[in-house]
Simulated scan of single mutants.
Amino acid sequence: MKKIGSNTVRDGCASMTGMAIFVQEVGAVEAPAVVLLHGVGTSGWMWTKQVSALAGDMHVLVPDLPGHGQSNMHPWISIADTAQLVAEVISARAPGGRAHVVGLSLGGYVAAHLAATAPEVVIGAIVSGVNVLPFPNPGRLRLLGTLMAPVMKWGPVLRANARALNVPAADIDGYQSAARATSRQAFRRVSDEALGFRLAAQAADSPCPVLAVAGENEHDLTRRSLADIAAAFPHGEACLAPGVGHAWNGEKPGLFTDMIRARVTGDRLPQELVSVR
């Protein structure tokens, strides 16, 4: 346990269903809880700017998902299994056993499944960069994922990925370190599972408010998925973040943080976000 300013930081493992995953915990324990779920090939590191901005008045929980970061010794099983692990983190560490959940990319898939299947622990969810539509040529994409796995930690590949994600220059070293901590097993399984991801049927009965978001410059399938995700949940909404791509929490960290804060406090979303209907 250590201090960052006036905030208590608790870094440690949460043991659930026979598995221990690493969870960074920052802020006052009695404050509203926010869980930040990272993307594939990175770790809770990607939320550094949001953690710094939110920790003053929120209870922030940042897990490293199985196969990633400081949880990289624990094999990735599935999105559903990981959602259950996150639900147990919330039950154990959030006030009243409930939290706001924010996920980007892989984290968005986990958050969407969690909002559908375990709404009792989710006050509200933000899911960014999630595709629920069929990919063209999924077999070819699976083959590409298999071929990429052995070289995913190679410097030129990491630099190319960072450019594709528009990772800010100041964050390149952190991105590469987080990527190198990802297990190849997790990379292969997550890539394969995401290709066939569909929202759980329980979404239709979930009382959880869900905000689906995508960067304006994301893949067309991801942008078109917004309306489907919002329609799947009785309390679903969708919006676009202008001028950014997939990893936009790093491109426009202030806007991303303001969006989270608005959903937690019940305020209006930032005007810069464009509603999708």
Score class of each variant (00 low, 15 high):
residue 254 G to Y: 01
residue 190 V to Y: 04
residue 176 Q to C: 14
residue 250 G to M: 15
residue 259 M to C: 14
residue 260 I to F: 09
residue 207 P to S: 10
residue 244 V to L: 06
residue 198 R to Y: 01
residue 263 R to Y: 09
residue 257 T to E: 08
residue 178 A to M: 09
residue 212 A to T: 06
residue 185 Q to R: 13
residue 220 D to E: 15
residue 220 D to N: 10
residue 176 Q to N: 04
residue 178 A to K: 08
residue 259 M to H: 02
residue 193 E to N: 11
residue 183 S to Y: 00
residue 218 E to L: 05
residue 205 D to Y: 06
residue 203 A to D: 03
residue 192 D to M: 09
residue 246 H to T: 08
residue 228 D to G: 01
residue 272 E to F: 03
residue 231 A to N: 14
residue 196 G to L: 05
residue 174 G to M: 11
residue 189 R to Y: 02
residue 175 Y to W: 13
residue 240 L to Y: 00
residue 244 V to M: 05
residue 174 G to K: 10
residue 201 A to I: 05
residue 188 R to Q: 12
residue 243 G to S: 08
residue 244 V to A: 05
residue 243 G to A: 08
residue 210 V to S: 12
residue 264 V to N: 07
residue 231 A to K: 15
residue 265 T to W: 03
residue 213 V to P: 00
residue 250 G to H: 12
residue 251 E to N: 07
residue 219 H to E: 09
residue 263 R to V: 14
residue 242 P to D: 01
residue 236 G to L: 05
residue 262 A to G: 12
residue 193 E to K: 08
residue 271 Q to W: 00
residue 231 A to G: 11
residue 223 R to F: 03
residue 212 A to Q: 02
residue 257 T to W: 01
residue 252 K to I: 00
residue 242 P to T: 09
residue 228 D to H: 14
residue 225 S to T: 05
residue 177 S to T: 13
